[in-house]
């Protein structure tokens, strides 16, 4: 008989594979059987460890919250495992789009006027001018080709590795995570631009470097990072 529920030992715990071709009811039944069998073996062997880490993998099936909760309950009640995570080969279309937005560089070409707010779920490249009173916000980094006279806030959900690249020869304000810096460079003599990288350094201070040092400051800036699950 085909086994739809299989337990495998892995580094740091166990892996429970749920076949994606069986019906969910069949899975629950077999899981019952498996857990009963394990409990019996535990009694015999005198094994006493609790809360062994278990990863539940559903293959090409997408478990909904209800199903996950049914599996969790069974495992909690009938075994000594504690569920570390649910993993799968698939995800919903919505979550995929969301993930793509979070790890992509969004591009906007517009003038951000006073009172307008641009919000980006990941990094953003803004080509245009940010007027005084205009706001650009991003969970990731902000790159501005144009003039920044308003507010740019990178890493708004606390990512202190976010950076802001802009021409800082202006009057403006920048923020990275919860650090704030006032830019007051408009009167610097005989220069026509001051394109730099603003970042949070090891001492948790917002500082500036020339553009050529961007790779040293943030080696993974041009790589896609960030998990799906």
């Amino acid at each position: 008989m085909k086994q739809n529920v299989a337990l495998k030992g892995i580094k740091d715990g166990f892996l429970l594979n749920l076949s994606d071709t069986a019906s969910f009811e069949e899975l629950l039944e077999e899981l019952d059987g498996l857990l009963d069998h394990l409990r019996a073996e535990r009694k015999l062997s005198g094994e006493t460890r609790q809360d062994i880490q278990l990863e539940v993998h559903s293959g090409n099936r997408l478990l909904n919250d209800e199903q996950k909760s049914q599996i969790s309950t069974k495992i909690e009640e009938k075994s000594h495992f504690s569920i570390k995570s649910f993993t799968s080969n698939v995800l919903t279309y919505e979550r995929a789009i969301e993930w793509q937005k979070e790890v992509s560089l969004e591009m906007k070409v517009q003038t951000v006027r006073s009172g307008q707010i641009i919000d980006a779920p990941g990094d953003i490249l803004l080509i245009g001018k940010v007027h005084p009173g205009g706001v650009v916000r991003a969970k990731g980094s902000i790159f501005i080709i144009g003039e920044l006279h308003g507010l740019a806030h990178a890493g708004i959900e606390g990512d202190t590795t976010a950076v802001i690249v802009a021409d800082f020869l202006t009057k403006a304000q920048i923020r990275i995570a919860d650090s704030i810096e006032v830019i007051d460079n408009e009167d610097e003599e005989s220069r026509s631009s001051k394109v730099e990288v603003a970042y949070i350094n090891d001492l948790h201070i917002l500082s500036f470097e020339t553009l050529d040092r961007l790779k040293k400051i943030q080696p993974s800036i041009d790589k896609v990072t960030g998990g799906l699950f």
């Binding site: 006027r113 006073s114 009172g115 307008q116 007027h131 005084p132 009173g133």
Partner: peptide, 12 residues
């Protein structure tokens, strides 16, 4: 001028 800029943003 600042207020005018705001208004343009709203009219957009």
């Amino acid at each position: 001028i600042r207020d005018a800029d705001r208004i343009i943003g709203l009219l957009e």
